[in-house]
Amino acid sequence: MNLRDRDGLHGRLDDVRCPVLWLHGTADQVYSVENAKEKIRMFTRSPEARLAVVEGGQHFLSASNPAEVDDAALEFVRRWAAL
């Protein structure tokens, strides 16, 4: 089963009302950066929906680029926790 065919996010987008950080690698062989750009715009009820592109990052971004993932996640949490 392809993961995109399971109960996807599309049917639940109206319920997502929190900030969204989408990290996406340029070397992802499953989904393109263009796909991520298209999908991040669907989070219309979020106070912020941001795409961060990681140069050379692969599909399992936390494995291929752990430092970049950690840095981005910590910055995101710190920013929103302060509000």
Results as ranks from 00 to 15, higher is better:
P47M: 10
K37N: 11
L21I: 11
S32G: 05
E48P: 02
V16L: 06
R6Q: 08
R6G: 01
G8V: 04
R79N: 07
L9G: 03
T26C: 13
R50C: 01
R17D: 01
S46T: 03
C18W: 04
L61W: 13
A36S: 15
V54C: 13
C18E: 02
G11L: 03
Y31V: 07
A72P: 04
C18P: 00
G11S: 10
D28N: 09
L13R: 02
D71E: 15
V54A: 11
D70L: 13
S46P: 05
D71L: 10
R50S: 01
A63F: 12
S32Y: 02
V53F: 09
G56F: 09
V20N: 10
W80R: 06
R4V: 00
G56N: 10
R17T: 11
V20T: 12
G25V: 07
A67N: 06
M42L: 11
S32M: 02
D14W: 01
L74M: 13
L61K: 14
V77A: 13
P47Y: 01
A81G: 04
H24G: 07
E75Q: 15
D70K: 14
A81Y: 06
A63T: 13
D5R: 07
L13N: 04
H24W: 07
L9V: 12
T44Y: 05
E34P: 02
E68V: 06
R50G: 00
L51C: 06
R41A: 15
S62V: 07
V33W: 09
I40Y: 02
D15S: 10
A27D: 15
V20M: 08
A67I: 08
A67C: 02
M1T: 05
G57L: 08
L9P: 05
R45K: 15
V77G: 05
S64I: 13
A52C: 09
E34Q: 14
L83I: 10
S64K: 08
A49W: 13
A63Q: 15
T26K: 13
T44W: 04
Q58C: 11
R17Q: 11
L9E: 02
V16R: 03
A36Y: 08
S64A: 09
F43Y: 14
E38C: 00
R12H: 12
E38M: 03
E38S: 01
S32K: 02
V33Q: 09
H10R: 13
E48T: 01
H59W: 12
S32I: 04
S32R: 10
T26M: 14
A67H: 11
L3W: 08
L23W: 08
M42K: 00
R50P: 00
D70I: 12
G11R: 11
E68T: 04
P66L: 10
D28I: 06
F60T: 12
A67W: 08
L23Y: 07
L13C: 06
R50T: 05
A63K: 15
K37C: 04
A27P: 05
D15M: 05
L51H: 08
T26A: 12
K37D: 06
G11A: 12
D70E: 15
A82W: 00
V77I: 15
A72L: 12
E68Q: 14
